[in-house]
Design a protein around this nucleic acid. Sequence first.
DNA 1: ATAATTATTTGACATTTATTAAGTCGGGCA
DNA 2: TGCCCGACTTAATAAATGTCAAATAATTAT
Lengths: 187, 187
Amino acid sequence: MENLILYLNSIHPLSDGLRNYLTQIIQAKTIKKKDYLLRAGRICDQIYFIEKGLLRCFYLKNLTEVCSWFMMEGDVAISIESFFLQKPSYESIQALEETVLHYVSYKDLQYMYRQFPEFNFIGRVLTEKYYSQSEQRLYAIRMQRADERYGYLMQNLPELIQRVPSSYIASYLGITLETLSRIKSKR
Amino acid sequence: MENLILYLNSIHPLSDGLRNYLTQIIQAKTIKKKDYLLRAGRICDQIYFIEKGLLRCFYLKNLTEVCSWFMMEGDVAISIESFFLQKPSYESIQALEETVLHYVSYKDLQYMYRQFPEFNFIGRVLTEKYYSQSEQRLYAIRMQRADERYGYLMQNLPELIQRVPSSYIASYLGITLETLSRIKSKR
DNA sequence: ATAATTATTTGACATTTATTAAGTCGGGCA
DNA sequence: TGCCCGACTTAATAAATGTCAAATAATTAT
């Protein structure tokens, strides 16, 4: 938990009150490989900070799973629309490795935003950061040919390709496992 | 400008100081059809609020333009990564119709975030809102077949299809004008 | 109104990727 | 050891979309 508090403090100094409050309400949790952090249909009402591990975010489309993204050490894990709008999630979040998390509830977070105005500064900066990353992904996903999208991932997040099974990478790239296999063999 | 201030106030009440400051620094501007709000290569250092009109955001890819999104009345207009990270933009923003805007500079915005903590609340809420919308777009863009992506746009933003020339819609959907034309004729 | 320009549609063919099916590889375990 | 299972690869064919070219329709300027 110290890590997380230090990180938040580096964005904007935390008042003693906020620091104490955070220390009291931040919870910890470890989930095993294949366990779910969120199941489609439920409202994402916790915001998680990943200490260690790897998660995938996916949804069902015509009975098959479509991988929307991966999250790892240092990332915040939520289902964006579900958490921000507090509506049922269309996507699920599942651990691909044993994962260590810290988290707070949506309610506690809103309470902090009201009670400790400086916390909005931190929330804003983090939201801007993840929003920027999401735009980068949108840019990458928009590349027309599959081998270009793979190349972009290879260039920018080679670690993911190592840690994530090919089937999920293919799903994320919007191609079949077979096409991914052919792209790899051509390089 | 009243509109914009009322809108901000509805998210979180503005202190008198903030309201006065805003009144002083918000600028207005009208740009004509085909004029640019931002050119690729430059840093996006203004954040705009669209009073009336329509803009497109696009970038160059192998000598051809790729449309990344459209923005209209009530939207905030920036190039996300360029503005948040204050780095040169890969995309340009151009008016598709005569457009009336209000805006403030990045510097003024940062000043307000420091000087008027409550403004972070508003900034955070708006960032969350646009982030959610961006995720929806990502979801839509990820649909495999072109006719599904078109259908999604038709369902959720039929007005765009009316106001935006087909070539830009096709570019946004990641297909050729010819394919879009065929999709339309099949419906 | 008319010509000139631009936008959209249509057709024939090429390329990319999906689909289906079969084969290979490597590790866990009876 | 050897068999079984899951993960990955390879091949043949089909479907979706792109490319190029031409025709038609709509818009703009004179």
